[in-house]
Design a protein around this nucleic acid. Structure first.
Length: 511
RNA sequence: GAGGACCUAGCUCAAUGGUAGAGCAGCGGCCUUUUAAGCCGUUGGUUCCGGGUUCGAGUCCCGGGGUCCUCACCA
């Protein structure tokens, strides 16, 4: 029993508090208690027995009532009070709507009183036989009804639901029951990640956990979040990638490792970027980028089958469909470039001229001419990459070595790197590499990277001496990849933004 | 970071610079097969915040906050 109401309580909340207290005064526990043997609403529905219902309707004899009884719980989404008969619709995560009826004659007295005091959004526990209404809807004809929890906050409009995008993200707990699609997406996410874990375990991959708090943020080129550790009086970085630690585990002798976890990048937010995001990163000793590409195709296909109600991995996305069953398309970086620009990436003069003609920046503010490979990539990303088929998973292979400093160059052509990026639905899903394992080359690349950064970046980019030491100990040749899990879920759940697949996306604080 | 749009009752949305409204929810009444139940009656506002222009501002102007979109940034 509440002593005093919070001062600024809204009138509608006050009314709900009053009803809650009336329920308590009647002798019920407004916030419920342990309840065993509850059926999910989707299952309750299937217990209906037509013959038993028919028999009961003919005799109306409680002693010969053989109709199956169910005990269920759910949140009230509709409430129709006909006086001595009250209809309600309950919702749980298994079923959007399941009807119960509470009649003055057939329900116990407490239950009927509770039905009278029920507001939309309350959580109730009902028990009773299953029957069919005149219109054929399977309904639980409650013989008892008890409270499980009170909803003190007025719920969204019952038909339009919660439309306000900001409120949906800020109050996901309301969004989830007001818009069942939200819950469905989060459940799909969970199932897909579980399926990926099981799939990898079956192929001999060991799931590991590596530091999220790091003394230097390595493994990617991104701005990290900085935090502070009191005990050691040092600043720490939230990791931007687990790569350098996973590779240390290869050095240590684990042949196949993966980690599915959060990375943190202190950069902008948009439809495809949240500051914390989930990545599957994976390494296989004695493999190369092609080994991993094949594995990734299997992973993505398996994930898509898990997500597909039909079992076959062909799923709608935006205005089209994506077929994950077919082998993914493959095209080299150089071919895709030539196809859409009309000349080769090696034609230096042509590249510079075309970049200028097409309005790209070809020199810095200070007048220094920009690097050839930088221009190539600008042209590529602006005019070639966007031309990829929007609904066909495609590998872009063999990036210029200059653009992939941490990747092993191709033995047959050292100007190209053994790197492939997977694109699906217009999104970059994950880079794949044959990893560098020569400590001297790695050491050199670290130095080049450090030299090339601006002042701001140089404050947090450092030379990872211990990682070089690990490579000196000897890492087997290996293939590796990072797969953006959030983006994969966007594809599989057909969601337009990364925030729709993250339960609690980053929002600016209010006030 | 730049540009554009938006913010009105608990929710979904209206309102030429001229009395802030509807539907749903709520409250009171009637109702034992309803389906967004129905019928009668009824309450409800810091129009995101702060300034300004004006006889008069939800509406126009300036500043701030938040959200969305586009672009930029982004292995």
């Amino acid at each position: 029993m509440p002593a005093d109401l919070p001062i600024d309580v809204h009138k509608l909340e006050a009314q709900r508090r009053t009803k809650r207290d009336e329920v308590a005064q009647l002798g019920m526990l407004p916030y419920g208690q342990r309840t065993d043997d509850l059926l999910p609403l989707a299952e309750a529905h299937t217990h209906y027995d037509q013959a038993a219902d028919k028999t009961f309707q003919e005799h109306k004899d409680p002693a010969r009532d053989t109709r199956p009884r169910v005990k269920i719980a759910g949140r009230v989404t509709l409430h129709r009070d006909n006086g001595k008969l009250i209809w309600m619709n309950l919702r749980d995560n298994t079923r959007e709507s399941f009807q119960i009826a509470v009649s003055k004659k057939d329900c116990d007295e407490l239950g009927f009183s509770l039905a009278k005091l029920t507001d939309m959004g309350d959580i109730l526990i009902a028990e009773g036989p299953l029957m069919k209404t005149r219109t054929g809807e399977v309904t639980c004809w409650a013989s008892t009804l008890r409270p499980a929890s009170k909803c003190l906050i007025p719920p969204p409009e019952k038909h339009a639901g919660l439309q306000d995008i900001e409120l949906r993200y800020r109050q996901r707990y309301v969004d989830m029951w007001a818009n069942p699609e939200t819950t469905a997406v989060l459940e799909l996410r969970s199932r897909v990640i579980s399926a990926i874990r099981a799939f990898l375990a079956e192929r001999g991959f060991l799931e590991v956990e590596t530091p999220m708090l790091q003394t230097q943020a390595g493994g990617a080129a991104a701005r990290p979040f900085i935090t502070h550790m009191n005990a050691l009086s040092i600043d720490l970085y939230m990791r931007i990638a687990p790569e350098l630690f996973l590779k240390r585990l290869l050095v240590g002798g684990l042949p196949r490792v993966f980690e599915v976890n959060r990375n943190f990048r202190n950069e902008g937010l948009d439809k495809q970027h949240n500051p914390e995001f989930t990545m599957l990163e994976l390494y296989q000793a004695f493999g190369n980028y092609e080994t991993i590409m094949a594995l990734t195709e299997d992973i993505v296909r398996h994930a898509a089958r898990t997500a597909s109600p039909a079992g076959a991995a062909i799923l709608p996305f935006r205005d089209g469909r994506i077929d994950y069953e077919q082998p993914f398309d493959r095209i080299t970086y150089a071919d895709l470039f030539k196809q859409h620009l009309g000349f080769a990436i090696t034609e230096r003069d042509r590249v510079r001229k075309e970049a200028e003609t097409r309005g790209l920046k070809v020199r810095t503010e200070a007048g220094v001419e920009l690097d050839h490979w930088f221009l190539v990539n600008e042209l590529f990303e602006t005019f070639a990459e966007p031309k990829l088929h929007p609904y066909r998973p495609t590998w872009i292979m063999d990036y210029p070595a200059s653009l992939s400093p941490l990747t092993r160059p191709k033995t047959s052509d050292p100007s190209l790197a053994e790197r492939a990026d997977l694109f699906i639905g217009g999104m970059e899903i994950g880079p794949h590499y044959t990893e560098l394992n020569n400590p001297d080359i790695q050491s050199e690349k670290f130095r080049e990277q450090l030299a090339g950064v601006d002042d701001e970046e140089s404050t947090f980019r450092t030379f990872d001496e211990d990682f070089i030491n690990a490579l000196k100990v000897g890492m087997p040749p290996a293939g590796g990849m990072g797969l953006g899990i959030d983006r994969l879920i966007m594809l599989l759940a057909n969601q337009p933004t990364i925030r729709d697949v993250i339960a609690f996306p980053m929002m600016k604080p209010l006030g």
